[in-house]
Simulated assay, not measured.
Amino acid sequence: MKRQDRKREDTTVFHRIRRRAKSNEMRRLHDEAWAQLEGLVPPEAERTPAEPQPCEPASVVDDFLPPELRVLSHDQLDGRMTPWPQPLVFDGDMVACAECGAYRDWLILSTRDQIWLRCRRGHQQQEMRLDTAWYNRHAGPADATHATFEDCLRHLGH
């Protein structure tokens, strides 16, 4: 072994020993400081009353939204739909309508934990590769609710 290499190795060993000693010293100081703090009580704790003060019961307030502005929850709806103008591609295959061959401008329908695709011509097919979680991730917020399926189709321009 060369003399310079041995000297470098010796200095790195000494650096490690110094670091370890410094680390042990810091640990000792930390433990001492922690032991001094252990018995102390914060001043705020002494000022806090031991028993809770009785308070007046909160007044009952009606829901903040009037009934005409409330949105139905997902379990109160028969289904949801969203337009999907671009092609749908799953596992490298482009989805096409089984009847007319259309591959874009879909309506994606989510109902009863099933996903259905509806082409512009009104043909519908169930898409087994999609689920409600996929629909929830990709659908935007609802901008309206409709009493009938036909009303919703008209609203979305189909």
Rank of each mutant, 00 (worst) to 15 (best):
L107W: 05
T148I: 04
E150N: 06
P57I: 05
R16D: 03
A58F: 06
R112S: 10
R137C: 05
V89Q: 12
P57Q: 09
G122R: 15
G101F: 06
R16A: 04
P42S: 11
A45S: 06
I115R: 11
L69F: 06
L153N: 04
R8Y: 03
P67Y: 10
R112H: 14
D62V: 06
T111D: 02
Y103H: 14
M94V: 15
T82L: 00
Q76R: 15
R121C: 10
A102E: 15
R104K: 13
E25I: 04
S110T: 07
L117Y: 07
V13G: 01
C119S: 08
R121G: 09
D93K: 15
E38F: 01
Y103G: 14
Q114N: 14
L37T: 01
H138R: 15
Q124E: 15
M1V: 07
D75F: 10
E38H: 07
W84T: 02
E25T: 08
E56M: 09
F149K: 04
P49T: 10
G157M: 02
A133Q: 08
T12A: 07
L29P: 00
H155T: 12
P54K: 11
E9T: 06
P87K: 11
E68G: 01
T11I: 02
I108N: 01
R118K: 15
N136V: 08
E32V: 12
Y103E: 12
D31V: 01
V71H: 03
A133P: 00
H138W: 05
M81A: 14
K22R: 12
D62S: 07
R16H: 08
T148Y: 06
R112F: 03
C97Y: 10
N24W: 03
Q125D: 09
M94N: 04
P87N: 08
R19P: 00
H138Y: 10
R28P: 00
Q86H: 13
S73G: 09
T145V: 03
W34T: 00
Q114I: 04
A58L: 13
L156R: 09
A96M: 07
H74V: 10
G157D: 03
R19E: 01
D151R: 14
W134K: 05
R16V: 00
A102Q: 12
